[in-house]
Amino acid sequence: MRSFLQKGWRPILVIVLLLLGWQLSTIILQIPEWLLPSPTQIVREAITGWSIFSGHITSTIQLIFIGFIIGSSIGIFVAIALHLVPILREAFYPLIIISQNIPTIVLAPLLVIWFGFGMLPKIIVITLVCFFPITIALLDGFRQSDRDLKHYMQMAGATNRQIFWKLEWPHALPALFSGLKISATYSVLGAVISEWLGASEGIGVYMTLASSSFRTDRVFVAIFIIVILSLLFFGIILLLEKGLIKWKPKEERERHE
């Protein structure tokens, strides 16, 4: 905690100054609340409106969670399949890159047309934004395994299975976690976008309702909640990583030396 304060005071100071500047400019320039509410007004709305809001949050968290787990499992599975079967990699790698150039916003209404307003199209949206960073990071991790070690293992008579589980998989774990961290924040965004399109509950729904009724303060509450959720999710993955990877990855070690 102490080291966090030592390292963290600079960004915290910037944030505090930013909020202060915001607050002062809304007062001095007399900006109307529907255009830009001041931070205190946003906080007040967050507290008074909490009872309406909390239901939306739990619904979104649930969606993020299910989507993230399905998305990352598919990401890991695709990476392993592409790594172990070179023909698959050659055939599908370019397709995966192309799939990321289709904007989710464009794809989402199509998914609603095909799958309705239920859970399925939303999970598909989150999966689409989640699996890509994981697959790419994991594939790179597999491929960058130590060549000398691989030769050593092959000459000692290791099977492909042993090489995968003893060498490539553990070597790719740090890469997997960098992918998971990116996906964690993406999945929050993916969940909100999918809720815009049609849902009965969720932060996305709350946001569209708020903006269509010019409740700018509520839009800001939603934005802050999204940021906090992303950070929280990121933090959970970070904790998991610290628990699982006790050894220092190579790059980090070289940086310290």
Partner: peptide, 27 residues
């Protein structure tokens, strides 16, 4: 054959004991 590469090539995620035992684990 047991091959010892030019670089030590130890697995950074294994302890020294487990690194040393790798050759036995394989076969």
């Amino acid at each position: 054959i047991s091959y010892t590469p030019q670089s030590p090539s130890l697995m950074p995620w294994r302890t020294i004991l487990n690194n040393v035992l790798l050759g036995q684990e394989i076969t």
